[in-house]
Write a protein that binds this DNA or RNA. Structure first.
Lengths: 152, 152
DNA sequence: TCATATTATATGAAATTTCATATTTTTACA
DNA sequence: TGTAAAAATATGAAATTTCATATAATATGA
């Protein structure tokens, strides 16, 4: 795995975040692929697990990717029978993405594994860090989001 | 920017990390592209700023990407005159990547902007969080890396 | 109500990325 | 030594991703 690079990079906030994200996800993403899913597909399943019928645009935003890419990911998942598109009555521009039965099953199975994996990761930390990490990231994220939204 | 998705996703550690990384990097990556660089190229410059003459494999690891992709990124940077390859005397398999003068100049300019950007981000946090975030991520990363290395 | 702007999604074409594997050089050791 | 394994990089071909823009539906407001 990632050894620590030199002194600027190794203590640079953006590196620490990207590297932590990568390191935390690594094993689980391998598992995701074993289950026949690509990471973006898993993200879609997770979003729809929380709230079925999200729009393409919302899925893209929550899954941290571009809309046109999400369109094609939904294409593939639809071909595979994991989701179906339904056009929104009331606003014909909107496409609502729904889990099929198979998608629902897969979705809850993988979410369960994800939660288990998370518990494992947290249990490798010392108690204090394990308790603080998520609330601390939530505050960071909120702060970053509001900072970003002031400049776009 | 990213609104908060549903209840599983929005408090899922891997989501918090990926979303924080994305949100923290967003504005700066726009700036990187304004400077005519793509993100992976910026990462290479940052690594070589810390330590000139790294191997392709090391650059790939530190920049969180695959070796064959790094080979092609170095190709492009070499064509652009930012770096040069030199083969390692002592081990002919190794390719050492060195900054050119232009690469060195660009590298330090962008690193400087990166540090300034980091200060700006940190100043948007409350004092306690700003003080704790980097050490806390460093511990997390160390823990994740050692956990990952036990299983590969 | 008509024209214009905006929003949501889709798509063609170019560029990048991935995956498997080839090539070259070193290392290990029988 | 000679030979097999390992390590570092490169590369072809397929797949994915990006970018700009098309298409379609809705909102806005003169």
């Amino acid at each position: 795995m990632t050894q620590t690079p030199g002194k600027f990079v190794s203590s640079y906030l953006l590196y620490l975040l990207a590297a932590s994200s990568e390191a935390a996800s690594h094993q689980f993403h391998i598992r995701v692929r074993e289950l026949g899913l690509r990471v973006p597909e898993w993200r879609v399943l997770a979003c729809l697990y929380d709230q079925d019928g999200l729009m393409i645009t919302q899925l893209a935003r929550y899954s941290l990717m571009e809309q046109s890419r999400m369109t094609r990911i939904v294409d593939q998942m639809e071909k595979r029978g994991l989701v179906v598109r339904k056009s929104d009555e009331g606003d014909g521009r909107r496409v609502r993405v729904h889990l099929t039965d198979a998608g629902q099953k897969l979705s809850s199975d993988v979410v369960e594994e994800a939660m288990e994996h998370e518990r494992t990761l947290l249990s490798a930390l010392n108690q204090a860090d394990a308790d603080r990490i998520k609330p601390s990231l939530e505050r960071l994220l909120a702060s970053l989001n509001s900072w970003n939204s002031t400049r776009e």
